[in-house]
Design a protein around this nucleic acid. Sequence first.
DNA 1: GTCTATAAAAAGATAGAC
DNA 2: GTCTATCTTTTTATAGAC
Lengths: 196, 196
Amino acid sequence: MGVVKQDRRAELLAIAGRLFAERGFATTTVREIADAAGILSGSLYHHFDSKESIVDEILRGFLDRLRASYERVLAERPEPRAALTALVTVSFESMDTDGDAIAIFQNEAAYLSQFERFGYLEEVTAELQACWLGVLERGQAAGVFRADLRVPLVYRFIRDTVWVAVRWYDPKGTLGAEEIAAQYLTILCQGIVALR
Amino acid sequence: MGVVKQDRRAELLAIAGRLFAERGFATTTVREIADAAGILSGSLYHHFDSKESIVDEILRGFLDRLRASYERVLAERPEPRAALTALVTVSFESMDTDGDAIAIFQNEAAYLSQFERFGYLEEVTAELQACWLGVLERGQAAGVFRADLRVPLVYRFIRDTVWVAVRWYDPKGTLGAEEIAAQYLTILCQGIVALR
DNA sequence: GTCTATAAAAAGATAGAC
DNA sequence: GTCTATCTTTTTATAGAC
């Protein structure tokens, strides 16, 4: 019974997450979520306090998983270049399981984080950023990465490029997360110019 | 008088654009726009038909200017490498004048383009995409760009990286559009790995 | 766990006076 | 060009029956 309840809850979260990701949090109505779940809007409030509670639960779940992934990567890969590769790959792979949550995070975090309730979004963002900055700085110090590039700029470059891919990346498409990650890393590390 | 009317119109468009960019189209209310302009919500309808008309006018203006910029670049730079540099630079520079419109376009195009009225968004997107793809393909054919990279992927890589920068780029900050464009082009062309 | 019914607030838009 | 006043619709949320 507890399991069934959990399943239903997870199901509703997935349905809402898909809609939030596709149409945006503000433009998705409680009625649309209920419709997609085959129930009436009032019934949703048996499961969740409010529309905000739904997106809150989606984001917390995703961010917890991502944080754990990043920490595992940093623990397992001391070398900057290997860590960078693993961070990029892990990020792309998370699109397979958390695509909707990533899209929501990318599109709505700026708006949501202005409310107290979502203050944790900025904290987690800072934590994740610290992972990337650490790798880039250690790599630059070790002479693995070019010294003439500004680390914060490189970080934003990578972050933007990786996460915005959620807009077009299709988990069921021909290009898998690993392949895309590999091509991205090639561009990122070697550049697009030929003949060297 | 015609000039004054135009000025007021432009002023209101700027105010609305700023709000749409910061808080999103759906979450910005007509009342908020009016408040920011120092008038009442009903008065806005003397200038515009609807909230949609406002964002429509903002986007059309920006896209017309951007299209013109791209065409000028392609006409003036036959060489792929020079054209790529110019496209990136022109794009970053447009953030100085059209930052709000760019943010709106990035954040709302997917949502808005589902309505007939905004069907032109997809057309223009395709036109702009064709500019980049053409440069990359000619560059690859000429041996200027690496042959082992998939052009569509490289295009999305560049597009995402350039435009998402609008989220953090500050026209009044210490880093100017040209400097950022230069660093981006260095990463893009040479990669971040040291010692070659 | 879902439905019926409905409350309460918010938002886009309009008509006419000034 | 803006204000007063108001309409209409949409949306979030609640209370209690089944």
